Simulated assay, not measured.
Amino acid sequence: MNSVILEKLEALKNLLAEMERALIAYSGGVDSTLVAKLAYDVLGEKALAITAVSPSLLPEELEDAIAQADYIGIRQELIFTMEMENPNYTSNPVNRCYFCKSELHDTLKPLAIKKGYPYVIDGVNADDLQDYRPGIQAAKERGVRSPLAEIRLTKPEIRQISQYLGLPWWDKPAQPCLSSRFPYGEEITLEKLQRVGRAEMYLRQLGYRSIRVRSDGETARIELPSAQIPDFILKTNLPELVAIFQQFGFTYVTLDLEGYRSGKLNQNIAQSS
């Protein structure tokens, strides 16, 4: 690992040490897990990881978050958030994430105060600041700090540091909440979240890691890396896959020939602005 990244790693440790006590908004993704790992290394029992549980979190992602926290050694607590009760969230506007993160941090901030933690920190990185992320605004409004972004760590650098530290999940694919699978304006319901979640878990069981099942009305659109599309078509029992997706509640099943690309739904925002 090059000297620039090592310098950033030391700067990140120093920043966390200055906090003395910190509560981490911990999802189990590569970014927040690195924050949790280093916070625990630097602060020990004065670091606490909090994982929010809601219908938009895949059950397997929750299992991963619990297992990774146990591997690190950090104390972890689960909370339940109620964004599905907010019509500003379920109506799925372009700033949906604002209402999700508002719910999260309106829950975390009082908890941090109650438990004596002066800082709530998250896993937002420098690359996130370049994308449309209304949830970041909600976090900033509530005083949340983002150590990775403050040190200007990018996603590739975070993966390099995670690998350097021996974290087995350093190459884990990004896994945003299930609500990101729906086009803006389509109402989000518990039933829709569950069918998308089941569909993605099925594809992962087939061996595909970096995948999305986008939901558009009654249609499921499968996205996977373009290089894997030929293999997928040749080796997958397509009639069986369609039948299983229909059991989950979809009417139609399609394959996106462009392939998987993070933040694809945001392209419509950029085009209309």
Rank of each mutant, 00 (worst) to 15 (best):
K172P: 09
K140I: 13
D216F: 08
G197I: 02
T154A: 04
E187W: 06
S210R: 05
W170F: 15
S226C: 10
K155I: 04
R204W: 00
F182G: 13
E200L: 05
Q163R: 15
W169Q: 04
L193S: 12
I151K: 02
K140P: 00
R214T: 07
K140R: 14
T219F: 00
G143Q: 03
K235L: 12
A220R: 11
A220L: 07
E186D: 15
E200R: 04
W169M: 03
L167W: 10
K172I: 02
A220P: 05
T236V: 11
S179R: 01
E141R: 02
K235A: 07
Q175V: 04
Y164F: 15
E150V: 00
P176Y: 12
S226V: 15
D171W: 03
G207L: 00
P225Q: 07
V196K: 09
S210V: 08
C177V: 02
G185W: 03
L190P: 00
Q194T: 14
P225V: 07
P156H: 03
P156V: 12
G217W: 01
A139K: 01
P176C: 04
R212H: 07
T189H: 04
I229P: 10
I161E: 04
R145I: 08
L190D: 14
W170C: 06
L165S: 11
L206T: 04
D171F: 00
V213P: 07
R221H: 12
Q160P: 01
I211T: 11
P225S: 06
P176G: 10
P176N: 11
A199G: 03
G143A: 04
L167C: 11
E200C: 03
L148W: 06
L203D: 00
G217A: 06
L148Y: 11
N237R: 05
V213T: 04
T236Y: 11
R195N: 01
T219C: 08
I158H: 10
R181D: 09
L165Q: 13
N237L: 06
M201F: 09
G207D: 02
L165H: 08
S180Q: 10
V213A: 04
R209E: 14
T154L: 05
R214V: 03
R209P: 01
P168S: 08
R195T: 08
I229M: 13
W169F: 12
Y184V: 09
L148P: 02
I211W: 07
R159A: 13
P168G: 08
S179M: 02
R195K: 15
I151D: 05
W170K: 08
L153Y: 09
Y184G: 13
K172V: 01
R204M: 04
R212W: 00
I222V: 11
R204K: 15
